[in-house]
């Protein structure tokens, strides 16, 4: 009896709530709207592409993601010829990106970089910039720099970054940044070299800045460090600042030269942001050992003496990892 009495107010509340919700026009429409139900698809490239096409046109973001991932995972067992044909013929950018990513997975799993040729052709030769960008985006998360080299460097990121379409250039940057961090965790010399070369080849300072700022230089070769150092003479102050920060992350064997270049930059550059980046590069190169050098730079630009003080305080803590030092410095002087 007591139980029935306790349930009654809850029941009344839920009835009232249902009534109010049914009066809301948006929800009433949503209840009656036709929903694209997933249909059974044949386990072939064509059948799965039909599913991806429907998902891209009418599916929710989650369903679109699911359809793309399903195709990518299935690609390991799908015939590469059919995937290659689909990549060559597809006209919808979203579907091209999905089937291109599937082909890249197949190429990586089977260790056959030559399978990527249809995708590389679309990336470099398609007349539609949207399709070129989709083909480049399809390479994201794959070892694309290595695979391009194994395909004879017929298509390279240095070429693609000169594309007239900004979305293609943007896709190049995203790929390199993702590949450096996600596949190699910053430990790959080829990626560092590719980033420096692509930054140098780009006419777009924003692209170059992002590449130098986000692709790790910890395994950069002497040649890559030399090219990076040349960027300190760029006319674009933002690019000089990005190069200065990137020089702070070069390997120990290159640190002496990088230290000289950054010290000289700090003394000669008139831009405040560039000088600030030079200090960061010097702090990163030497960590706690950089303190005497930073002390010696006091007075060169009095506006930045508080910045030097913040670095000295952060370095005094003897923290052992760069991201901890950087966080401590940002806490002291954002």
């Amino acid at each position: 009896m007591g139980s029935r009495m306790n349930k009654a107010p809850g029941l009344r509340l839920s009835l009232r709530l249902s009534l109010w919700l049914s009066l809301l026009p948006g929800l009433a429409l949503a209840q009656g709207a036709p929903v694209a139900a997933p249909t059974q698809t044949a386990c072939t490239v064509e059948g799965m592409l039909d599913e991806v096409r429907v998902a891209m046109k009418t599916g929710s973001p989650a369903y679109r993601k699911y359809a793309r991932l399903r195709l990518k995972e299935a690609a390991i067992a799908l015939p590469p010829e059919a995937l290659g044909r689909a990549v060559s013929q597809e006209r919808d950018p979203a579907v091209l990106e999905a089937v291109g990513a599937a082909l890249a997975t197949k190429a990586s799993n089977a260790q056959k970089p030559e399978l990527l040729q249809p995708l590389l052709s679309r990336a470099s030769q398609d007349v539609d910039p949207g399709l070129r960008a989709a083909a480049v985006r399809a390479l994201q998360g794959s070892p694309s720099v290595e695979f391009m080299a194994k395909n004879g460097d017929v298509v390279t990121y240095e070429q693609l970054v000169r594309d007239s379409a900004p979305e293609v250039r943007q896709a190049v940057v995203e790929n390199l940044v993702t590949e450096s961090a996600g596949i190699y965790f910053g430990h790959n010399p080829e990626l560092a070299e590719a980033a420096v070369k692509v930054a140098a080849a780009s006419d777009d300072p924003a692209v170059a800045k992002r590449l130098l700022g986000e692709v790790s230089m910890e395994a950069a070769s002497p040649e890559a460090v030399r090219k990076l150092t040349q960027q300190l003479r760029s006319e674009d102050a933002g690019l000089r600042a990005a190069a200065a920060k990137a020089l702070g992350g070069v390997p120990g064997s290159e640190s002496a030269g990088a230290r000289r270049s950054l010290t000289s930059l700090y003394k000669s550059d008139s831009d405040l942001a560039v000088r600030k980046s030079a200090l960061e590069g010097l702090a990163r190169l030497g960590q706690s050992g950089a303190r005497p050098l930073l002390e010696s730079l006091r007075g060169v630009d009095p506006r930045l003496d508080p910045e030097i003080d913040a670095w000295l305080s952060a370095l005094k803590r003897n923290l052992q990892e760069w991201h901890l030092i950087l966080r401590e410095k940002q806490r002291l002087s954002p």
């Binding site: 990586s108 799993n109 260790q111 070892p143 596949i183 965790f185 990892e321």
Partner: peptide, 29 residues
């Protein structure tokens, strides 16, 4: 596979064949 901040993932005791060697790949042999 060397990750960030000292993390790694190792696979041991391989019987080497033509597939064995340093490489970047997704679930390959």
């Amino acid at each position: 596979v060397s990750g960030a901040n000292g993390w790694d993932f190792r696979q041991l005791h391989f019987y080497a064949n033509v597939s064995s060697g340093t490489k970047t790949c997704d679930r390959c042999a």
